[in-house]
Nucleic acid binder design. Structure first.
Lengths: 233, 233
DNA sequence: CACGATAGTGAACAGACTTGTCCCTTATTT
DNA sequence: AAATAAGGGACAAGTCTGTTCACTATCGTG
């Protein structure tokens, strides 16, 4: 049994979140341990996939034993939801930007979103995005914590811009509000990261033209009926 | 596993393309068998995830033995790439629409894309989208077979529309061309399916306003330098 | 300050499942 | 009929899962 783990001299390794089994001087409990487990969970999720998660792998990564995990959660799914929901490791309520201009707000909001995606919690989202059908509860949590808040804020930003005359009133819709975040997400999936230049490009090449006040060209909206002309073959 | 694996009564009498081990009168070989394996692979991929794929599971789904698979491919990864590449089960070159109008072209192209996503081969894409980092070769194939062709055609559609005066010339860019497909993909991931109404909404609420000829408002493009105004906190 | 309650650590374990390979039988092709 | 390859089962080695246990650091209380 167990060479004692109470090495009295190891003050150096004070507190690194993702330590792969570093012998610790202090034994964590309660909240501190829980948060370390959340971190390890998100890191592992970011590295691999939801299906491969297991208490078996997470425990050593968090520098603890499986028992501590089984005492808290019944399944990896529960653990993931908890990790996502916890404000300190997962997602809290994002704040609305207020730079005074539509372009400033968009770049601030989308830039922050892109930044979050580069953190462990953001990279942990990636494997979850394709799990809608198999793990509705997990996906619903992603939706509730990430997708919907962004959409809500974006809609408010658009409304404010429309009120200032900076944006066309008819672009204040959920569909238009979804464009920015979705383009960021797509860029993230395709390239692995979203740089500042990408954010600017999305804002300047897509969102600004899309929301620009319309000098009433007769074509901008849906042509009433018009057969949809789909000629797929 | 005492229960015989060739249960003569498939549950719910599934049709034969994805038949879960229906006893066959005829023994397939060569191309026919290969294609059946591709189908089973894509079906299973659509149902679960890339990580969970294994010859062990695919073989019975294709109604054959593991030997037939190991004789053809060394790893599930190779098999997936082959299944995606095969024109009869995977993706060939998509055709460019030519309806005469920008809106018609967009709805035709994106509608067809949405349709493909509802097929097995399309649903099989979903788990692959998050595998860029772990399986670059598979993702590269997705890119080559699905993402890039769509982008290429869309760019051509935009160019043609610009030539006709239907679209602003400055919107003929890869970034703008990426918007449609990416919104379709995002809708697909978030809702599980993309209906005709979604396609129309994307075209009419986003793409048409975005590409509308610009009567030269002084603001549509990037403001030269202008600090990016990001005030993320 | 010391004691007892609580909870973390680390390991072991049995059972289930997975993996790649091998081999024998049988259908199909030449 | 001979050659080829499919069908399908069996195998050993390895992996993963959830439990349980002995041990000990930490905390709260008296």
């Amino acid at each position: 049994m167990a060479t004692t783990s109470h090495a009295p001299d190891a003050p150096t390794a004070a507190a690194q979140p993702p330590g792969p089994a570093t012998p610790r001087a202090t034994r964590r409990r309660g909240e501190a341990l829980t948060r370390a487990i959340y971190q390890a969970t998100l890191n592992e999720l970011a590295r691999t996939s939801f299906e491969e998660l297991s208490f078996d792998k997470i425990a050593p990564l968090a520098g603890t034993g499986k028992s501590a995990l089984y005492r808290r959660w019944a399944t990896p799914e529960e653990l993931v939801i908890a990790a996502l929901t916890d404000p300190s490791t997962g997602f809290g309520d994002p704040v609305a930007p207020d730079t005074g201009s539509l372009r400033g707000d968009l770049i601030a909001l989308l830039g922050r979103f892109a930044g979050v995606l580069d953190e462990p919690r953001g990279r942990a989202l990636r494997p979850l995005l394709t799990q809608r059908a198999r793990h509705p509860e997990v996906f619903e949590e992603v939706r509730r914590l990430v997708i919907l808040p962004n959409q809500r804020i974006l809609l408010a930003v658009l409304q404010a811009a429309a009120d200032r005359g900076e944006a066309a009133p008819q672009c204040v819709t959920p569909r238009v509000a979804s464009v920015g975040p979705r383009l960021i997400m797509a860029e993230f999936l395709e390239k692995g990261t979203v740089g500042r230049a990408d954010v600017q490009s999305i804002v300047d090449e897509v969102l600004m033209p899309l929301t620009a006040p319309r000098p009433d060209t007769g074509r901008s909206d849906a042509p009433a009926d018009a057969g949809d002309g789909a000629r797929a073959t």
